Simulated scan of single mutants.
Amino acid sequence: MAGATASDAHPTMGVKIFSAGAAACLADVVTFPLDTAKVRLQIQGECRTSSAVRYKGVLGTITTLAKTEGPMKLYSGLPAGLQRQMSFASLRIGLYDTVQELFSAGREATLGSKILAGLTTGGVAVFIGQPTEVVKVRLQAQSHLHGPQPRYTGTYNAYRIIATTEGLTGLWKGTTPNLMRNVIINCTELVTYDLMKGVFVNNKLLADDLPCHFVSALIAGFCTTLLSSPVDVVKTRFVNSSPGQYTSVPNCAMAMFTKEGPTAFFKGFVPSFLRLASWNVIMFVCFEHLKRELMKSRQTVDCTT
């Protein structure tokens, strides 16, 4: 990322990938209840029965979930979420600098090379991590209140049932909207963070430390949520849908628009922002710290040997 100092200069690609994966997993553990609340709010409106539980706001959704289905329901799908971060975030974030250097061809990175790097790493990561996204969303959306038997009893049960009933392609269901979503998120999140960090450090407004990382990540979180929300809602609805419920991604989007209006595309915006902003802050702060500490440890080992 921009503004590297001597203490954290030139971390290796392996260090970046490991640091990104570990930091993303930590951020996911802390913010997962917000993500679950976001999913429940996004799918609300599909079930019109009078007995359906209604969720209102972030805290209201979390409280209702904890009361009606138990506190552990807030972490339903966490194993798949961690698998997603290890296969997804580690690549899209850990490879960003390396790919950016390839596109800039040794010259100073431009906005264009930053965007291309975000597009490339985000796209590759989606195809690799999509099965974990499908399982995570379905487990988060699953409620025992809507039937005597849950669709899935656990993470690996979900993988097996989806693969056997929907085919292997079922594990890559919703790849198109998820690709659109994550390309937007990856570009906006990483490029905004990189640019803001560069502005703060290069103009000596903030040093390359915790306050700079915190503010840059917060700004990146807001911009990312604003741009990605419509695609995120469509992705969640389509991924969670039963076979045949929607004929295509555009059909899903059109059904939302005609039945619930344009505001449906911003359902769950507040928990999305709270989750993404807090996730960004935790991830980027830990990512920067881990990179520095790992490089210091490596330098210490090199000196002793």
Results as ranks from 00 to 15, higher is better:
A2P: 01
G3D: 09
A6Y: 11
A6C: 12
A9Q: 14
H10Q: 09
F18E: 04
F18N: 04
G21E: 06
A22H: 03
A24I: 03
A27M: 09
D28F: 09
D28E: 15
F32Y: 15
P33L: 06
V39S: 00
I43P: 00
I43H: 00
I43T: 08
I43L: 00
S50I: 07
V53M: 05
V53L: 14
L59C: 06
G60Y: 07
T61A: 13
I62R: 03
I62N: 01
T64W: 02
G70S: 05
M72T: 14
Y75M: 07
L82Y: 02
M86I: 10
A89N: 13
A89H: 11
G94R: 07
G94F: 09
E101D: 13
R107M: 08
E108R: 15
A109E: 12
K114H: 12
I115G: 07
L116A: 14
G118I: 03
T120L: 11
T120M: 09
G123M: 07
G123P: 04
F127T: 10
T132C: 14
E133F: 06
V135E: 09
R138I: 02
R138V: 07
L145S: 07
H146S: 13
G147E: 04
P148H: 04
Y152E: 05
Y159T: 07
Y159L: 11
R160C: 01
T164P: 00
E166N: 06
L168Q: 09
G170I: 09
L171M: 13
L171V: 12
K173S: 10
L179K: 01
N182K: 04
T188A: 12
Y193V: 03
Y193K: 05
Y193F: 14
Y193R: 06
D194V: 05
L195H: 08
M196T: 12
V201S: 12
N202R: 15
K204P: 01
L206E: 08
A207R: 14
H213N: 13
F214L: 15
A220N: 05
A220S: 14
F222M: 08
L226V: 12
D232R: 01
D232Y: 00
V233D: 02
V234C: 01
K235Q: 12
T236E: 03
T236M: 02
R237W: 08
V239N: 02
S242E: 15
P243Q: 09
Q245Y: 03
Q245M: 11
A253D: 04
M254N: 05
M254L: 10
A255Y: 00
M256R: 02
T258H: 10
K259S: 15
K259P: 01
K259W: 00
E260Q: 13
E260A: 10
E260Y: 04
E260R: 11
E260P: 01
T263A: 14
A264H: 03
F266L: 12
G268T: 00
F273M: 13
L276V: 12
W279F: 15
N280L: 10
F287N: 12
L290I: 15
K291R: 15
T300W: 05
V301H: 08
C303M: 11
